[in-house]
Design a protein around this nucleic acid. Sequence first.
DNA 1: CGACATGATTAAAC
DNA 2: GTTTAATCATGTCG
Length: 455
Amino acid sequence: MDEQARIMQALGGVSLAGHSVQGGMALPPPHGHDGTDGDGRKQDIGDILHQIMTITDQSLDEAQAKKHGLNCHRMKPALFSVLCEIKEKTGLSIRGAQEEDSPDPQLMRLDNMLLAEGVSGPEKGGGSAAAAAAAAATGSPTDNSIEHSDYRAKLSQIRQIYHTELEKYEQACNEFTTHVMNLLREQSRTRPISPKEIERMVSIIHRKFSSIQMQLKQSTCEAVMILRSRFLDARRKRRNFSKQATEILNEYFYSHLSNPYPSEEAKEELAKKCSITVSQVRPHHPSMFHTSLLSNQTKYQTVSNWFGNKRIRYKKNIGKFQEEANLYAAKTAVTAAHAVAATVQNSQTNSPTTPNSGSSGSFNLLNSGDMFMSMQNLNGDSYQGAQVGANVQSQVDTLRHVISQTAGYNDALGGNPMYSPHGLNGNGGWQDATTPSSVISPIEGPGSVHSDTSN
DNA sequence: CGACATGATTAAAC
DNA sequence: GTTTAATCATGTCG
């Protein structure tokens, strides 16, 4: 304590001497007081500085009183201008030290992640309640959709926490900033503070708070990652499709046997019909943070998987799928027959058929005449497919199958194929559906198709 | 538990 | 980018 006082004393002396306080500075006129000797003045200044330096050690009331005393002190203006001068001289170096804040790449990465995951972006779908409602709305809410809504709920929980925390931080930051600004404004009465300085202080505070926010963002990202990895792990456990779903997929497959490559629209339609939810959809490479940016190709990956597997497995062992093929062919044939009847009626009532791709529930036919032609020609194996649209082709596939059955060639014994996989060419690939130049002869050697059940 | 079924993943070809 | 073919990993059934 003694030493501090001594330093204070020395400091006062030096600074005052160095800056010609005693000379031309705007000191209060000496005549106002009786203490006109230099020593007394020095003592006075030393006292003031000492009070300033030790102001933080005192209680609030005491400090307040001292502050008031200082503000009213006759030496105050003089000290103020001295401080101004010192500041002006040292200000340059401070200003030079100001660094430009560059956008933090780490922070940007975190922001992008949170945005991609829908944590920081605009609320979509109305949160978990909407997700649950959507899950309930689908005819048969599968386990997957429940799982998915669970995921959504958890995500929205994280989202909520993140937002409240962020808001808290922002509020605290603002409060603290105004507090500091008030303090500085208050202090500016005793010491010179430029607006630039206040600005700088504010930016420092903001930087500090944003570093805290970054921690929040980081931990939020981690939480999402953990949630996501758990969710993906859960999905990794394969779930078989519902019976209805496989039925729908099989129906499509066997009615498009000549070209079992559903278009994107068809896949979408099938996915919808099968209630294959997004939870059953995942990017080809299950890397993090991509679901919200799913492209169309990956969107119906599950349907594509199914068709890929089906094609290869069907081709590998057609014999094994005979029964299934017959079943679905017969099933679709009924629908087709109904469609034919409907079309006949339609053409009679002079209503033109409008193309309605993707809706396998209602077939579109060019006209009834063509359809009958097709059917007749099928028996004669001279069908010209080029004129017929793809949707008709699917019915042709089915009908041909049925007709081939009723035509009575060959028996169904010993696993012999009831109909030949006409869409399949000799090389084991599917022909182009738009140009089924000629139908494979039904009198194909049974050996060429039935063959092995070995694997 | 083992065999088979089936959805997903992968490399390679296109 | 898609598809094929092989393979993995899990579900299911007896």
